[in-house]
Design a protein around this nucleic acid. Sequence first.
DNA 1: CTGGGGATGGGGCCC
DNA 2: GGGGCCCCATCCCCA
Length: 513
Amino acid sequence: MADCVVFHTQIASIMEVLANAAVANICKLVDDDYAVFRLEITQSQKENRALRRKLQIFELKVARERAERATRERVLASRPSSVKILDRYRGMARGEGHLTGGHRSSVKPVGHNTWRDDQPVTVDEGSGTSTQHIIMIESADAEAAGPGVKLERSEREEDTWHSRDTQTRVAVEPHVATKDPPTIAPAPPRTRHRITEVSGTQNAVLKSETDTDTLTVTHRLLHTGSDHRSDPERLGKGPLRYPPAPGTEYLPVFHQSQRMVHSRGDALDTGVDVPSCSYSTEMDPGNISLGLETQPDLSREDWNQYNSGLYSEGSLDKKGEGLVIDEVTVKVEGDAPLTWNVDKTHLGEGYSQGRDFLDYRESLETNPNVTTHSPLHTVRDRESVSTSMGPSDSQDHVLFDQVLNSKDQRAKGRGGGATLGNSKEKRFLCMFCNKGFSCLQKVEIHQRVHTGEKPYSCTQCHMRFAEAGNLKRHQRVHTGEKPFGCTQCHMRFAQAGHLKRHQRVHTGEKSYS
DNA sequence: CTGGGGATGGGGCCC
DNA sequence: GGGGCCCCATCCCCA
């Protein structure tokens, strides 16, 4: 029995030793493998860091190239030759080029509605967003393509197309792909950029819209300082052009609100234009002619009555308070055929400047569609005047003085201009400038300054004159008549005043002291 | 300096 | 005598 116990004890000891030895071996093996494994891990980590450094360097290089390319793209896009740019970018979109950056832009001229060749490019810009840049070139060439050219279109939504280099990059640098969302799959939130050049000139304005699913921001990407509204090339063409600003192409001139207000009595004081009419007008002699024919005959005497009545109606005196002509503009197109080119026969009974004005006024009152006259339309606006009658009204008078044209100013300076209580002889007042004249004919002739009426036409040229005397003087141009000869030289002149002026040469009199 | 024209005032004639 | 019409002289501006 004792031997049996000893035997078991020995066996147990041996098994323990063996077990310990086995554990020790295992541990040793594990330790050795672990060391090797750690060494391998360390080496791999080193390699990994080296690759990362390479990657960073490569990305920096790519970013630099991308920035340079984007700069060149903008420069090229701002040029009118958009078609060339399109071809270049089309090739790149098809993989023929080397557009490595995320700012791949599809530049196409407007008018191309099919984008089969140059599908929108989706690139991974490293931010997990797929971005599209579409530069719509609206150049003069594109505009010249004719009407119907679509100048702006929405960018494509799909981004399943990837550039070749992007795919290569993903394959070469899988670790990058593990950090970033897969570029193949759509990566919300999607950012859309739309860069629209709204000018084909060097001073292009790039209108950029950045849209996201949750945010829409419109901003002006580039503004070279030339407002497209002030760009002469843009004025007048291009669907994207702004309507002419009233303050630019159409300056804010008062003629658009010119009105002739006929107000009587208390209207002057209260400012109520009752009865009143507001209009702006372009003097049309033809219309006046019609007025002469269609309006009931108003004899000159009637006109005198009217003329006098204007200044004496109601409680108003001759100062003209009863008639307020505020900002009148009258224009005469000198080249327009004067159907009312009145000769002496037409100037017979019934012809009256005042009646013309009545008809003129009435036609304006009854015709709301009277063409407005812009002083900018022609330089021959010497007849354009803005007057305000009502000399007793200081404000009106001030306004009148401010807007009175130079000729009227000259007339005033020469002792014209009726004043209140001027002479009794000058009882005929001009309805436009309130200047007084001694007789009706004088004021009629004078008012032609304002109305532009020129009844006297030269038979040998297109010249027209408001006065017969001036026509007669003018006709010496055609006849060559020079009745005024200098007594001290051979010079001859057609006008007496010219002779008088010429003689200063002999007398040594200076024109200007 | 000249040529041409715009605008105005004055005077004579006629009704 | 007054008013209208016509003519002319004149001043001025602009090209």
